[in-house]
Design a protein around this nucleic acid. Sequence first.
RNA 1: CGGGCUGUAGUGUAACGGUAGCACGAGACGUUUGGGACGUUUUAGUCCGGGUUCAAAUCCCGGCAGCCCGACCA
Length: 486
Amino acid sequence: MSKVFGKKGLTKKSENISDWYHDVVLRAGLAEYADVKGCMIIKPHGYALWEKTQSVLDGWFKEDGVQNCYFPVFIPMSAFQKEKEHVEGFSPELAVVTHAGGEELAEPLAVRPTSEIVITQKFSDWVQSHRDLPMKLNQWCNIVRWEKRTYPFLRTSEFLWQEGHTVHADKKDAMVMVMTALEWYSKFYRGYFAIAPYVGLKSQSEKFAGAEDTYSVEIVVPDGKALQSATSHYLADHFTKVFNVEYLDEEGNKKLAHQTSWGLSTRAIGGLIFVHGDDSGLVLPPAVAPQQVVIIGIAGKDQEMEEKVATYVGHIHKILKDAGVRVVSDIDFRKTLGFRINDWELKGVPLRIEVGGKELEAQNTTLVRRDTFAKHQTNTDLLSLEVPALLEIIQKDLYKKSEQSRNDLTTEVSTWDEFKSVMTDKKMFIRAPWCEDASCEATIKEETKAGTRCLELDRIQEVLSDTPCVHCGKPALHKWLFAQSY
RNA sequence: CGGGCUGUAGUGUAACGGUAGCACGAGACGUUUGGGACGUUUUAGUCCGGGUUCAAAUCCCGGCAGCCCGACCA
């Protein structure tokens, strides 16, 4: 790797990853703090990443027959209290409206922390026959969870997400949906965010409040901690039996529908920042970068040259735009070159094309990769082919780097001593046999701050024999992933 | 929600209980421009609410917000 250009006022990632993260969020223009605790103003550069996320996932949802809709942000407290595990799980973090229109409300309104309740209520009206199934809805919305400890993007009091809610005739159909949604998320992280995650089943104590089973996508943050980055729940009939979501099957028998829900939030952007960013700021994968290429005009002090360079930049801009590249031109000659370069690097634009007198004369351009800072010249004629190809290479290289980092930050242990020493020394993911007992899990967490993250999908079928739990020694059937979490 | 630290122009900082200063930024003009330029000039601030005091950015109390450490979570 070539040298990394540090930034004025930007903490180095290796020195303090938390300070670095906050600096990048602000300096790259992704978001700012709002006046309300834990609330965030998402700025255009950050919101563009969310819009890209939306457009990709929304396309996949619709191909599968999921329809978008919108439910109210307010939920009557009485409705919210109907599912016991659900309300116990969420009530500590509910925001509740008690006054409106200048008067105290007869019944307080919860600001939705998720919409299982209100959507399931409607499912009971909308689902009558097996012919109504499956019914697949999704909404893109904001939700509020009054977290005690907040962190930009990763854990904000209000956040944006999509929540998919579906009902099916039986468990088998519902499980297909659960796995389909999980695969969308996994595919999105791998293919667009260039992040290699772990995907698997949550333990019973870590599952969604009200779910039968929860599956999740877990990102390995470079400091060795885990970020739960999307979830897909099999709700069985837990909500449908509370709200009588029943249908008549072909034989005329009444049956309870089986339900799923699944979501991905703006937290994803936090994962993206953490995984790819470096000491120069944000690094965006080309597939999601709002601007994939920035063309920087360099003119010296020469007015005539400024005009020539501006024209040349425009020419290149058109070539790239016609080639389907998201491109932006910077011909703000009033600012010094260094300033402009640093600014675009902070923002994470994957590829920079420098164009000045030298390039003009040679009819070429200088290409500089954001991820490696590798620099080379390319003839202008070849740009329309080379740039899209290079963007793909950058995308793949970022993924490979993420995969390498994930693997480097994961280790397998079989004894409790090893487990403890790894968790205290380094902080990383540990794969170890576990008995699946909740009290054992709680003790592990108490002693190491690390909890179970998931049982990887491809290990669910693989059943161990004669293997003791890494902590308590009771028989373990699977190797689970453990880590400290964000 | 508990413990610790913090809160001064847009940003970063300084000021013993006694004139709120500096740098960057932003605006104007001029000179500059191949990795964060310079001069002249203009601009803008003590988180909010109480208290102590002749006098509060400074001390005290409460609130709000940020960061860190716990408990909780997408």
